[in-house]
Structures are given as C-alpha cells and as structure tokens.
Amino acid sequence: MTALVFASIFADSLNLNGDQANLFVLQQRLKWAGHSSTIAPVSSLAELEQSKADFLFLGHGSIAAWKACEAQWPSLAKDFLTFSNSRSALAVSSGADRVLAASGAQPAVLDASVSEFCLDDFDSQKILGYKNTSSIANSTLRVERAILTWLHGPVLAKNPAVADAILSDLLSISPKGLANENTRKIDEIVAGVWHLEMPKK
C-alpha cells in the first residue's frame, strides 16, 4: 500500500466551482485501489516544501479570493511551475490561467459568465467538462508535468481516465491496476454523463 500526499494551494479560497473535489476523486480512487492519501493545505512555498507533496493542485477562485491569495503568496503560480518540473500537478480554470501566464505563454481571456460544456482532445484521449472561456482552442494542455485545464469543477470525476493517468503516474503502475468494482460502477455512470452531454457538441 502506498500513501500519497496531495498538496492543495489555498484549498478553502480556491474552490469556487467545487474544484477541490478533484482531490476527493483522486483520494477515493486511491482508496478503492487499496492505497491511502492525505491532503495538505498549503498557503506558502515553505508549507509546500514541508508537505513533501507527491502532487500539487490549484483551483479556481473569485477575483477577491485571488487578490487575497496572491497578496499572501505572490510567487505561487511560478512556484507551481517549478514544482511541476519534477512532479505531477493539476491547475483548473483561473488557476490554470495564472500558471500559463507564469510560464510566459499568453493566458486565455477568462470569462466566468461563459459556462460552456465542451469535449476536447487531451493526451490522445477525450476530456469533457465546463469551461469559463471561449478564447482557447483546446481546454486542456500540459506544461511540464502539470495538467492545465480551463474546465472547472470536478473535472476528474467526469474524466476517470485522466484521474487514473495521474494516479498510475504517481504509483508507477498501469492504469489497469487501479480498476475495481467501484471504478467500474463509476465508469458506467460517467458513460451516462457523456451520453447526456455529447449531443450538445
């Protein structure tokens, strides 16, 4: 049994659309596969280093939340990128936007009043969810070992293949090694979610 540590940056503030549920999804899938995990809330580089995290998560926040978080940790997007040079990480929506900007690339024009269901290509598979911008061609991309997605909310719940790709990378096992009765049940339900949303595309 492996015990993983998931660090979450400003977990309470950057959870505008239920983004933190992505860590819950990873934890549940790990538990079902017989492994354990803990979540380390971090609000500074020192706390991140102290956490000895295997994986780093950055969510989506309101304008005021970001202002408060960045006042406390001005280099958080850059530190996120540095972390993801060597370990895997996930940033969603406005979190992804800030990390992309820190990488020197042009961030998307975020418009949270856009809540558009989309289906895109990612890592030779499909990924679906709700995005807050129509100014990017593809909702999800990789920068270093980080997955940046402009899909918000519980992205990994609706995309179990992406969740298992993260976990299999962390555990150095095949995604097939994570399959069990619970994940099969989830797969069936997710098929229903995809079926419901696909005709809109």
């Binding site: 819950f24 339900i189 229903g192 979610v193």
Partner: peptide, 21 residues
C-alpha cells in the same frame, strides 16, 4: 432529473447508497 447521471456520479463518489437511477 435531467442531471440524473451527474447526481448519481456525485453520490457514487461519496459512497452514498442509491436504489435506482
């Protein structure tokens, strides 16, 4: 409901028993 699958997904991850969808 229209979002029955989304609702069922939420409950399944929380391991809340569901009779039928």
């Amino acid at each position: 409901g229209y979002n029955h699958a989304e609702a069922a997904l939420l409950l399944a991850y929380h391991e809340i028993p569901v009779g039928s969808v």
